[in-house]
Design a protein around this nucleic acid. Structure first.
Lengths: 138, 138
DNA sequence: CGAAAGTTGACTAAATCGGTAGGGATTGTG
DNA sequence: CACAATCCCTACCGATTTAGTCAACTTTCG
């Protein structure tokens, strides 16, 4: 019932990408550095995100990553699905016959709905707001 | 992000106990049999539930388990806390500095609130209703 | 006392998690 | 062209968690 480090990193990486202008390429090394993610581990995660169509990459000397679609189209649910396979509370072991099963399904449905409603754009907007509050405060 | 078998079994066991009259003792063997839970594994779980004050046990030849409090006072959250230690989405690794942290906390809060609102009594009520529907249907 | 039942702690096999490592493919630069 | 920087792919590894088993012990009823 825990968010995995993998998922956490994936969200942070995409978030960091979204903070850069859409046209500039950001290198894995830079993403790893700014969010304190082990580089080699992040590279694996980025491959998953690429396969899921959320980031694009350019190889070679001046290569790097960019978002493959608007931040508004990338929800937390989408990222979790990409790196964890699926976003479900029950695994296949549980039999769909009992009362409890229905209850879990209800809870899961609500949970996923929430995850689907929060996008990277929301996170960016929140951050900008937070930063502004901070500035006012000084 | 999965419910563990342990937690699932714990809820099923308490649910099964709640289906019996409050005064009758139910043996671990019987609970295990009716919910298809490995007996030895269930015994471990029952110990945890006992320590958390949700079940009482009587040893010896005519021993067994009973609920230690009304089914209405046993929420899913309480059971999960008893067998899994805590009900949190983030582990301590995540640093509370970033925007994402706040978002996770919001989601977690909502999730736990839901788990706290569903009690074993609710499950029993639902089951009775389901069974009645079934009877009507025949 | 003896049988039935609960209790406990140690143990284990398998899966998952959080990474690391090596090497190959691709591309800009000198 | 050579080379360095970068991404990509596969394999591996140690620690932890999960799911469960086993043996031995204690308690209680008859």
């Amino acid at each position: 019932m825990k968010i995995t480090a993998r998922a956490d990193y994936a969200i942070l990486a995409i978030f960091e990408l979204a903070l850069h202008p859409a046209t500039t390429r950001v290198q894995a090394r830079e993403l790893a550095g700014s969010q304190e993610i082990p580089l080699r581990f992040l590279e694996q995660i980025l491959i998953q995100l690429k396969k899921a169509g959320m980031v694009e990459s350019v190889r070679g000397a001046a290569g790097g990553y960019t978002l493959a679609c608007p931040a508004r189209e990338i929800s937390l649910a989408r990222i979790l699905e990409a790196v964890e396979g699926d976003v479900t509370l029950l695994d296949s072991r549980v039999k769909p016959c009992c009362v409890l099963y229905k209850v879990w399904q209800e809870i899961e449905k609500e949970f996923v709905k929430k995850l689907r409603s929060i996008t990277i754009e929301d996170l960016v907007r929140r951050k900008i707001q937070d930063d502004r509050v901070l500035v006012y405060h000084i």
